[in-house]
Amino acid sequence: MELLYSVCVGVLVSCGVFLILRARSFPIVLGLTMLSYAVNLFLFSSGRLTINKAAILSSNEQYADPLPQALVLTAIVIGFAMTAFSIILAIRARADLGNDYVNQQTQVNNKIGAKK
């Protein structure tokens, strides 16, 4: 199971990095979202994988590690803020510049120049 979990994290990282390396804003935002999934899962797993041992105090002796959970919880919310900010930035960039390339200066000029 640990192996499967790690494979999932690895796949998410790969997909996230690939999307981040695209030239348009929307895939990059998706890539960032994907990467934050991966990072959250990774951080969460530093408390090890436990089943049916939620850190709700009861008669149990063993609990899942609550500290990474608390950290990841805030990370999820902050990750949302970041995704929101970057997508709005993308909208703003498109509205102001007329396209959604991330490399506004070089690539756009070349592309426009090539078309005309």
């Binding site: 790690s6 494979v7 994290v9 690895g10 796949v11 998410l12 990282v13 790969s14 997909c15 996230g16 990095v17 690939f18 390396l21 991966a38 990774f42």
Partner: peptide, 11 residues
């Protein structure tokens, strides 16, 4: 590059 990252982080 993406695969490399995935492999390293997964490992």
């Amino acid at each position: 590059i993406a695969t490399g990252c995935g492999v390293v982080v997964g490992s």
